[in-house]
Design a binder for these strands. Structure first.
Lengths: 211, 211
DNA sequence: ATATAATGTGACCGATGGGTCATGTTTGGC
DNA sequence: GCCAAACATGACCCATCGGTCACATTATAT
């Protein structure tokens, strides 16, 4: 947790600091991320940063928290009462919007989720909450008869998040490489891809023997 | 590439150096990985390390190469002429053996594949080769009529590697956390899990409407 | 044996960068 | 206007660590 001083700052200044931190940690990771550079890009003195945060680690941890809260505030409320497949679909869709609106934050968070920048278990704890949510959706899906019951919930969760993660990663990669091209096609260009992935999640990659 | 001096060393000494490097980089990552500690654990002077390698980066890169060659020599030759699902299954099975025999190396390589320790693109290039192999298997599977043809090869590859990666990760995690318990059950305890994952890859997680 | 090359060694150097602090500057209560 | 508390600042400190080098030791050749 940052010190009180940090929360006494104006919203704009706080945001400027956090964005400078996101940018730096995204570019260089935690170890190589330079506190001096962050303060410079935030337009404050290095000493000031240490009035806001105990140390580099606390700054990083709060950067993660701030980024995720940013998206939760903006997007996540929307997908509360869906079933699993709707949730996954909306999740992909959201990611498109997120990348368009906040490329750096989205990329940074993706890296955190992928477990780059190994810093602390408290980040892991945060991610665990997301897993629990998926597990709840899976249980619900089994009750509904949407999801096959012969396979363990945890394994289903692993399967779902693994496949999802990979396609998110690929889309973010393309977004970060060719910013222009990515914008060009609009969402529709990606919708097909995402629907295909949903198909795979539901029906697998094996040739169907029936229907 | 290491210097000639390194290859003049006895096999045992070379292995000792490489294992010390794996251990250090696994524990602390690239940036925080300490060259002094590596030389100490290898039982040589730091100066000697710099007779073998140009610098830390070269040492790390060769550590990756050495680790993967280690497994390729020992295991990979076995799974050359399988179809996709056999390949995936054998791949999982191998991983179990690998973790049992060489936990540290297996964990280290997994981290490399997951993209922790961002050091160089040359590692990426190496990983690309593995992707191409999967793509070849997918093409073959489509010809055979084993794999549905209505979905793009790249997406299928993404789907397969994503799901596989996740379960590998989870198994390695358990292996690294509770070494004892993991050994206890023997391979059979995991075989069920892996078969279930194969099922998911083939048929997906949706409740089947037919057959 | 002796000369020469190859290899081993660890004290040392120098850059980097996280973190501090003495000194300003602003704010708010009276 | 005055004072004290809160906040801002950046030159400075110092631990860390990658990399070097002068010297010691070992192997090879003649």
């Amino acid at each position: 947790m940052p010190k009180d001083t940090f929360f006494n700052l104006s919203d704009e200044k706080r945001e400027k600091v956090m964005r400078a931190a996101v940018s730096e940690f995204l570019k260089h990771g935690f170890e190589k991320g330079n506190v001096g550079a962050i303060s410079k890009n935030a337009g404050i003195a290095k000493g000031s940063l240490y009035q806001y945060f105990e140390n580099k680690k606390e700054l990083f941890l709060y950067t993660v928290q701030w980024s995720s809260e940013f998206f939760i505030r903006k997007y996540d409320s929307r997908l509360l009462d869906f079933d699993l497949f709707d949730y996954a679909y909306m999740n992909f869709r959201q990611m498109y919007e997120q990348v368009m609106a906040e490329k750096e934050l989205a990329l940074f968070l993706q890296n955190v989720i992928l477990g780059k920048y190994t810093v602390d278990d408290s980040v892991r704890a945060m991610l665990k909450a997301a897993d629990e949510f998926v597990l709840r959706l899976i249980a619900k899906g089994k009750e509904n008869g949407q999801i096959r019951k012969d396979i363990d919930d945890d394994l289903l969760a692993l399967f779902l998040t693994g496949a999802s993660m990979k396609i998110k990663e690929s889309i973010l990669e393309r977004a970060s490489a060719g910013g222009r091209d990515f914008l060009a096609g609009g969402y529709e260009a990606y919708d097909g891809e995402i629907k295909a992935m949903m198909e795979l999640l539901k029906n697998g990659m094996g040739e169907k023997k029936c229907l």
